[in-house]
């Protein structure tokens, strides 16, 4: 019984870490590759198009 709950705790902690890590990694690469300035301090609020000259 105790072994089971420990295993469940392990799976939950490990799972949460890996899912979160995977998610932020994918998001970061997508965002920076789009050039929406992921590294920049305006990242969240910058609604600029950052587009090339028309």
């Amino acid at each position: 019984m105790k072994g089971e709950s420990v295993m469940i705790a392990n799976i939950i902690i490990g799972g949460a870490i890996f899912v979160y890590a995977g998610w932020v990694l994918v998001r970061h690469v997508k965002k920076s590759a789009k050039g929406t300035c992921a590294a920049c301090h305006l990242a969240d609020r910058c609604s600029g198009s950052c587009g090339p000259e028309r």
């Binding site: 920076s32 789009k34 050039g35 300035c37 590294a39 920049c40 950052c50 090339p52």
Partner: peptide, 14 residues
């Protein structure tokens, strides 16, 4: 340059 800078240079220079 890091990925974000590369992408920005790409956008800005077109």
């Amino acid at each position: 340059p890091c990925l974000a800078t590369v992408a920005t240079i790409r956008k800005e220079t077109g």
